[in-house]
């Protein structure tokens, strides 16, 4: 066979690698440099600072609060959407009238930019003019308007709920794909052996869609951890930082207060955190898959 560029894997990989590397490695290097430097409010470097920026972030009480909420936020949304998406996917995998329509409706939130969804919710949650309150009053669930965004105890759960709603389409789609790859013969065989539907689910469906569960958990974890618009558009992390997660805290640190050095340090830490998180999860998932 003649040597052709098509047979040289390095040449084939090169454009993609360069493009991705350019956009990742260079900014990452910049970030590392800034995080170790003394830097003024406009990002101009003013000398080496060692780990000062990292220490400053660590000793900020708001950081620990945001870290904890990020955990609640990520775990809440990832597993919340998981718990809803599995049955939804099972239903959508059945053959019933209007299934295509139901699938389209479930996927609909995906079609809207997260920013726009968050803006719409902000409007719907408004205490006096919001249609959520008037809707709930109309069907008799509440008597007086609830000020959803006034305190973290109502705002944060609502934000997580919105997060779950916008995560469901992607998760359900992955599961649907997984379910559609399971052949009907397996269920047929199980039924002949007298297995109940629940047993069939436990013994056949769950193991076979396990890889799909894992991939959705990993990808969602990454997306949710980094998700900014929902919280920012509804409460901007307030009142009194009580709904801040790391991303919104990062934004405030960097672009409100102009502490770009600390913001860069936080960025690096967030990246490291996510990396450790994901690697651990993937390792655990792979081990349990092998068993």
């Amino acid at each position: 066979m003649t040597r052709s560029p098509v047979t040289n894997p390095y040449l084939l990989v090169l454009p993609g690698f360069l493009l991705a590397a350019f956009i990742i490695l260079w900014p990452l290097y910049q970030l590392g440099t800034i995080s170790l430097s003394e830097v003024n409010r406009f990002g101009q470097l003013r000398g080496f600072a060692g780990l000062d920026n990292y220490i400053a972030v660590f000793t900020d009480p708001d950081f620990l609060g945001a870290l904890w909420r990020t955990l609640v936020w990520t775990v809440g949304i990832v597993f919340g959407s998981l718990i809803i998406s599995v049955p939804v996917a099972l239903i959508l995998n059945e053959d019933f009238y209007g299934r295509s329509l139901a699938r389209v409706i479930v996927m609909l939130p995906w079609a809207v930019s997260l920013t726009m969804t968050a803006i719409v919710w902000r409007w719907a949650l408004n205490g006096e003019s919001g249609m959520l309150n008037s809707g709930l009053q109309a069907i008799g669930i509440i008597d007086t308007n609830i000020q959803w965004l006034a305190r973290a105890s109502t705002a944060f759960p609502v934000q997580i709920l919105i997060g779950v709603l916008v995560t469901i389409p992607f998760t359900t789609t992955i599961f649907l794909g997984g379910l559609s790859s399971i052949s009907d013969d397996l269920y047929e065989a199980a039924r002949l052996e007298g297995a109940s539907r629940w047993q069939a689910f436990r013994q056949i469906t769950l193991p076979l869609i396990r890889p799909f569960l894992n991939i959705s958990i990993v990808l969602n974890m990454i997306y949710v951890f980094n998700s900014f618009p929902i919280i920012w558009a509804t409460t901007q992390g307030g009142p009194a930082n009580s709904t801040d997660i790391l991303v919104t805290y990062l934004y405030k640190l960097g672009f409100r207060f102009g502490k770009l050095g600390e913001a860069s340090a936080l960025s690096v830490m967030m990246f490291a955190l996510l990396l450790i998180f994901t690697i651990t999860y993937v390792a655990l998932a792979m081990r349990s898959e092998r068993q």
């Binding site: 000020q147 959803w148 965004l149 006034a150 305190r151 705002a155």
Partner: peptide, 8 residues
Amino acid sequence: TQPGVTSY
């Protein structure tokens, strides 16, 4: 005041 001032 209006209720829920911290959301206004």
